[in-house]
């Protein structure tokens, strides 16, 4: 149970970091000045992930097409290991995401959450809310007219 909630917490911050707008993440990272010594377990490399769709939205899987993904892994001086998988080819973003993932497993976790995870989540939430608000403003009620014939 405890292990499950730990995994879910880690999934949560890894997702926040992966989906963070690049510029917001880079700025938050710089301002947080948490930079720690680390070594690469896996230097950033770019590849693809095949995105699958589901037939009819619910049925059997099919291959929709690929997307670019960059991944890397770091080890901090204290031995903690961080991973990152992000969309696109931004190596710096992948590095920051992996470092934050590692730091979230240390006593710096609260600071990383406050200074990085929360601000990038807020930026993403605001973008999403703005899009959703504009979409909602285009909601229509179509009504059918009585036709001319009997």
């Amino acid at each position: 149970m405890n292990e499950m909630s730990e995994i879910n917490a880690r999934k949560g911050w890894m997702e926040s970091l992966a989906k963070a707008p690049s510029a917001v993440l880079a700025q938050a990272w710089q301002q947080a000045s948490l930079a720690d010594e680390f070594e690469w377990l896996r230097a950033p490399e770019t590849g693809t992930v095949m995105v699958q769709g589901a037939t009819g939205g619910t049925g059997a899987a099919f291959n929709l097409g690929e997307m670019t993904v960059t991944r890397c892994a770091v080890r901090l001086a204290d031995g903690n290991i961080g991973h990152a998988y992000i969309a696109g080819r931004d190596r710096k973003k992948a590095e920051i995401a992996a470092l934050c993932d590692a730091l979230m497993q240390t006593e710096s976790a609260a600071a990383v959450r406050r200074k990085i995870i929360n601000p990038v989540d807020e930026a993403r939430r605001a973008l999403r809310a703005s899009k959703a608000g504009k979409a909602a403003a285009t909601k229509v009620d179509f009504f059918t007219l009585v036709r001319g014939e009997d």
């Binding site: 590849g47 693809t48 992930v49 095949m50 995105v51 699958q52 769709g53 589901a54 929709l64 993904v69």
Partner: peptide
Amino acid sequence: RFGASAPI
């Protein structure tokens, strides 16, 4: 290729 996603 790193892998395949779950069906979206």
